[in-house]
């Protein structure tokens, strides 16, 4: 791979985007790539809009993905998919977890949650897939494993070998949650994605 792979993972502070980016990055390290990951800490972690950027390839310079160059956008929440859409390549791939978390202006009634947001995203980015990772995670035994379901879907899209991803999950997930997370990952890999 001579080109750098750029993955943008967006969500709401506290949703567990950090574990997802860590697993992807670890796999890329294990495969021998140069890897950079950048994340927001601090105030935004209190329920604000957060993003992790993972880049890997032969040589990576900037830790941030240049706007308009992300290959894949993985969003843990629908509105956050829309928020980061401009960062995607014209033919980039979007994976959206079918979750709605109302931001404050919606909660307080000052603004409306755009109900048609998925349709508008699909119009702009035909390679969009909407998944219900939360439901799958519950079926696997723990709602918190939703982020690992998403790892499964994402890793297939960007072509990471599943056995390497499982290895990374074993390294990064505490032993007592491992079985559920591996099951969640395998369910994710089975998903078919528009690409």
């Amino acid at each position: 791979m001579s080109q750098t792979m750029n993955v943008l993972i967006a969500g709401v502070g506290g949703q567990g985007t950090l574990l997802t980016s860590r697993i992807i990055a670890q796999v890329a390290v294990d495969l021998g790539y140069d890897v950079k990951v950048t994340e927001v800490h601090g105030m935004a972690q209190r329920g604000g809009s957060v993003v992790s950027e993972v880049r890997y390839g032969e040589k990576v310079y900037s830790p941030t993905i240049p706007k308009g160059q992300a290959d894949v956008l993985l969003a843990f929440e629908k509105l956050e998919a829309a928020r980061w859409l401009d960062h995607l390549k014209p033919d980039g791939i979007v994976i959206i977890n079918d979750e709605r978390v109302d931001p404050l202006p919606v909660m307080s009634g000052k603004m409306k949650y755009p109900e048609d947001i998925i349709d508008r995203i699909v119009q702009l980015k035909p390679k969009t897939t909407v998944v219900n990772a939360t439901k799958t995670a519950i079926e696997c035994g723990n709602v918190k494993a939703a982020n690992v379901v998403l790892v499964g879907i994402l890793s297939k899209v960007i072509g990471l070998p599943p056995e390497k991803v499982e290895e990374a999950i074993r390294k990064l997930v505490p032993p007592k949650a491992l079985e559920v997370n591996l099951a969640a990952f395998r369910r994710g890999v089975e998903w078919s994605v528009n690409q």
């Binding site: 709401v12 502070g13 105030m43 935004a44 972690q45 209190r46 329920g47 604000g48 809009s49 240049p66 706007k67 308009g68 160059q69 509105l79 956050e80 829309a82 928020r83 859409l85 401009d86 960062h87 931001p103 404050l104 202006p105 919606v106 603004m111 409306k112 949650y113 755009p114 947001i117 508008r120 702009l124």
Partner: peptide
């Protein structure tokens, strides 16, 4: 050239007390 903007209008998501 700057990357094009899709002009989606999205409610902001400021941080909140837990």
């Amino acid at each position: 050239e700057p990357a094009p903007s899709h002009g989606l209008e999205i409610p902001p998501r400021p941080p909140l007390l837990c």
